[in-house]
Design a binder for these strands. Structure first.
Lengths: 113, 113
DNA sequence: AAGCTATATCGTAATTTATCGATGATATGC
DNA sequence: GCATATCATCGATAAATTACGATATAGCTT
């Protein structure tokens, strides 16, 4: 009904173990266009969807769909602002993703004193 | 010709910018089964392919394909060891992936003294 | 109200992915 | 050499992803 929604950012799924959570985030990041969108959003701090479309060699509808994937993963947030929609990266969520990945890196085998 | 190959670990693609690299790694991590395989490998330090198959509710051929994806992303390594193939996580590569993700997290806006 | 702009959604085609069973290849043991 | 175990690859199939143009919707502007 409302195309201009920007779903309330599903945020973290509480009923997901870290493995599934990580897989979900990784899947959202698993496309070059989405990584570029994210990076662009980070360098601009925020911007309208149109700017992102201009920045990528993809059709508007395609970009919109990538934005949706990122939104549903909670990696970005969109806010209606008059006629535009202002997107920005969700730093908090990005940090939590970074932690999930770091948790995967084995700690160097501890050498007992 | 040689089914028991364990391709030489394509490792890092030098001709890839960080965005594409990150997307490639994320795509490899973007499936719950693969994250579980990786985690299993990390808790065991190493193990035969059969053990991984036993650990997952998937057919042997399916697991083998997931292993291939992880291998081609350089996230794990396999070594022929007699009749088995011994897999282990590539910590170095995992660390580099962690760094790629961390590089995405905005540094807190620096407050000039 | 009528038109315009910005963006989401829909319908669809093409590609990729996930999964399985079956097969093939190698190494081991007899 | 022959049977067996272990694992990769193949072929098929179903499902998901990606991409696009077309359409619809919400909010300005006049």
């Amino acid at each position: 009904m409302t195309p201009r929604t920007c779903p309330p950012t599903p945020a973290v799924d509480p009923a997901a173990n870290p493995d599934d959570e990580l897989a979900r985030m990784a899947a959202a990041l698993g496309h070059p266009a989405r990584v570029r969108i994210l990076r662009f959003l980070l360098t601009q701090r925020e911007c309208f969807a149109g700017a992102i479309v201009d920045h990528l060699p993809l059709a508007q509808s395609t970009v919109s769909q990538h934005l949706k994937v990122l939104r549903e993963a909670g990696l970005i947030r969109g806010e209606v602002e008059g006629l535009h929609i202002c997107y920005c990266a969700n730093s908090e969520r990005l940090r939590s993703v970074a932690h999930l990945v770091e948790a995967l890196v084995p700690t160097p085998p501890k050498v007992p004193s």
